[in-house]
Amino acid sequence: MSVTINAHQLGLLIDKTIGHIGGEYTAPLNGIRLDVDTTFLYAVASDRYTLAVARYRLLHDDQGGQPFARLIPGEYLPSLREWVSSQTGSTYISISAEDHYVEFGGTHTELRIGVDPGLEYPDWRGLLRTITEHTVEGEPFPALSAGFMTRWAATGDNLRVRVTAAQKAVLVFGEDFIGAQMPVRYAGVGPMKDETFDAVRRQWDKTLAAGAEGLDMATDMPDEEDRPRYEVTTDVYETGEALLQQVLRSGIDMHGKSSSAPDEFLAHINAGVHGWMAYRFLDALHTADPRFARAIAAEVADELDSGEISEFAWDAAKEAGHNPQQWHDEYEAYRKTRKAEKTAA
């Protein structure tokens, strides 16, 4: 199982898709999938929210080979991209897939990367097939400059997009933000030089026809694996979601424990109350200054991951003019009293 591609084209496939790979807790998506059929070599990447596919038409000699697909793990992609860059752009690289590794062969060197052939990758052909079969009134199909699209990242927000017409500006809406991006003149995709959506879609019909019908990225992508308990999200929206979940779970857990386990009952109350307080403060901060809220969420995540929050709290209390030693002594006295009461009971 082997195909051939020049170094420049392989580098392009990686560059076009590497920004879309999933994180380490979604193993089937944590990398770039090299997928070969009888006509093309595809590079596929997804983080569950975006899905990117770049393709390269195989040389004539390769077009009778056996199809294969392997996920190149994300941890090896920088090394692979560096190795590809070390090759002359016109140098042809062979890509061979074995059970547990993929080998890249250059003129003077080779690179072998271990892979897991058992990882189940989403049916990307089926997902894109379903999306391309969606219809909208008027079929607006503007061409947008990718270079201009990166400018919207500075909003740091979830943006709504409204496509108005094929050759008219695309509207962008955010939190207290509105913008527009003009389409660019476009001569078509590949040799067809045609601007219509149907004409462009037909170029992918053979590829996407191999996918299942009716798939949906919202339900047919791999779920993220549970983070280790010490891993904290740096995303402000995920932080808010986790706080709300804590409040609701604490409310469920405290029922029936007021008399049977008063300490546990009080712990659930405290967890719920403090979770709600933290959510409300985070929500207010995000409303006042979304960028600062994101920075604080990331900073707090790092502090929690360090495992030193007791030390941080002690220092913060002293800086605020409180007496943490007195708090410590009073709580120790309370614990001794509670222990004595339990022993006497």
Rank of each mutant, 00 (worst) to 15 (best):
M1G: 10
M1D: 03
H8R: 13
I14H: 03
I14W: 06
K16W: 12
I18A: 12
H20V: 14
I21Y: 00
G22Y: 02
G22Q: 03
Y25F: 13
N30C: 13
I32D: 04
I32F: 03
D37N: 14
D37C: 09
D37W: 05
R48P: 09
A54Q: 10
R55K: 14
L58M: 07
L59K: 05
Q63N: 09
G65W: 03
Q66Y: 01
R70D: 00
Y76K: 13
L77I: 07
L77H: 04
P78G: 02
R81M: 03
E82C: 02
W83F: 06
V84T: 01
S86L: 02
Q87M: 12
Q87N: 10
Q87G: 01
T91H: 01
Y92D: 08
I93E: 01
I93F: 06
I95N: 00
S96F: 00
S96C: 01
S96R: 01
S96E: 03
D99S: 05
H100K: 02
Y101L: 01
F104K: 05
G105I: 05
G105W: 01
G105H: 00
T107G: 06
E110H: 06
G114H: 14
G114A: 15
D116C: 02
E120S: 11
P122T: 13
W124R: 08
R125D: 08
G126C: 07
R129Y: 04
T132D: 10
E133Y: 09
H134F: 10
T135L: 04
E137L: 09
F141C: 03
A146L: 12
M149V: 15
G156L: 03
L159R: 07
T164Y: 05
A165M: 06
A166S: 15
K168M: 10
A169P: 00
F173S: 08
F173A: 14
G174A: 10
I178T: 15
Q181K: 08
M182G: 03
P183K: 01
R185I: 07
K193P: 00
E195L: 07
R202D: 12
R202L: 10
D205L: 14
K206T: 15
A210E: 13
A210T: 11
G211V: 05
E213K: 14
M217Y: 13
D226Y: 02
D226T: 06
R227Y: 10
Y230C: 05
T233N: 04
D235G: 05
D235T: 00
Y237E: 03
Y237K: 05
G240L: 07
E241W: 08
V247Q: 13
R249D: 09
R249V: 13
S250K: 04
S250V: 06
G251S: 14
D253W: 11
H255V: 14
H255M: 12
K257D: 05
F265E: 05
A267S: 14
A267C: 08
V273Y: 11
G275E: 08
W276Y: 12
Y279F: 09
R280L: 10
F281Q: 07
D283V: 00
T287M: 06
T287H: 07
A288E: 11
D289Q: 02
R291C: 06
R291H: 15
F292E: 01
I296G: 00
D305N: 12
G307V: 02
E308D: 09
E308G: 07
I309H: 08
E311T: 15
A313P: 07
W314Y: 13
W314R: 14
G321T: 08
N323R: 09
Q326D: 11
Y331S: 09
Y331P: 04
E332P: 05
E332A: 14
K336M: 13
A340T: 15
K342C: 11
A344L: 10
A345I: 12
